[in-house]
Amino acid sequence: MASSCRSWRPGRGRCLRTCGTVLVLFMDLLSQCVNGYMSSPHVGQESPYPRDAQQGPVFTSPVVPASASVSPADEESYTSMCPSGGLCNRLPADCIHCDYQHNCTYKKPASFSCKPKKGVHCVGESGQQQTSFLLSVICQFCWQLDPSLYRCSNSTNCMTVSCPRKRYNATCDVLEHVHCLGKRTFQKRLFCNWTGGYKWSTALALSITLGGFGADRFYLGQWREGLGKLFSFGGLGIWTLIDVLLIGVGYVGPADGSLYI
């Protein structure tokens, strides 16, 4: 009994020493991981975004590069279209910086503080050169302007003769001397309104006189329908009458999808 106890105690001691060593190594490794994480750059620093941006969107004035950061090439591009020595409030929008505020009343006049860009010289009503001035603008965003105050790209890839009438994404640019809030280049959904030069009166006249030979369909660029009418003698007159009605109401149009003149 005594010999068995003596042989068991040394084994138990070695087991305890081994477990203690493993525990010490594990605690040392854990402390190194914690210290490394706490000393990392992303701990204890604020977010790179301002707190206002985290709480919700804030309307600010358009971001304009400082005059010192404008490259000579960019300066030459806008100074070439900016009249020198003219009235400050008559300068094109690309020639000035304005501190637009979006808390004005829609469609009401509002005054904003502006200054000419680097290299642009202008004068006030008294004839003295000014570095800052007040500009009176109707409070509205650029995309809210009257269509006559901006130009939009045209698309010839959409069908104008369709129900419902199709639209396309147009890129619009505000005219130079028009001042407005927001971006001066914007996107709009416009109706397809291009024309290939086909006249409605000509198509209708051909349909009434030579529709039995497919002349109206040939004129509109619809060759297969024109050949069908030609070899069927206008569908024995029935197809001819139907085309007169369809072209008369504008349901049948040019094959390229454009509008009549």
Rank of each mutant, 00 (worst) to 15 (best):
V178C: 05
R167P: 03
L190P: 04
L145N: 01
K117A: 15
F112Q: 03
L135Q: 11
V174Q: 04
K183F: 01
S126W: 02
T195P: 00
Q187R: 13
C114S: 10
N193V: 09
L175G: 01
R151A: 15
L190E: 07
S136K: 11
S153E: 12
L181R: 02
G197A: 07
L181I: 00
F191Q: 10
C180S: 03
F191I: 08
S148M: 11
V174N: 03
L149S: 12
G196Q: 06
C180P: 02
Q130A: 09
S153F: 12
P116K: 07
K166L: 13
T171A: 14
V178Q: 06
Y198S: 11
K183Q: 08
G119Q: 06
C192S: 07
R189K: 14
K166D: 14
K115F: 12
C114R: 06
A110M: 12
S136F: 00
Y168E: 09
S113Y: 10
Q187H: 14
L181N: 03
A110Y: 05
C139I: 04
N157C: 02
P164S: 08
S155F: 05
E125F: 13
Y198L: 02
E125D: 13
Q128V: 15
R167Y: 09
K166M: 12
C114H: 05
F141A: 07
Q130S: 07
V178D: 00
R151Q: 15
L181V: 02
R167M: 14
N193S: 15
V123P: 03
C114E: 04
K117V: 12
K117Q: 13
G197L: 00
S113D: 11
C142G: 05
Y198E: 05
Q144S: 11
V120Y: 04
E176D: 14
T171D: 10
S153M: 04
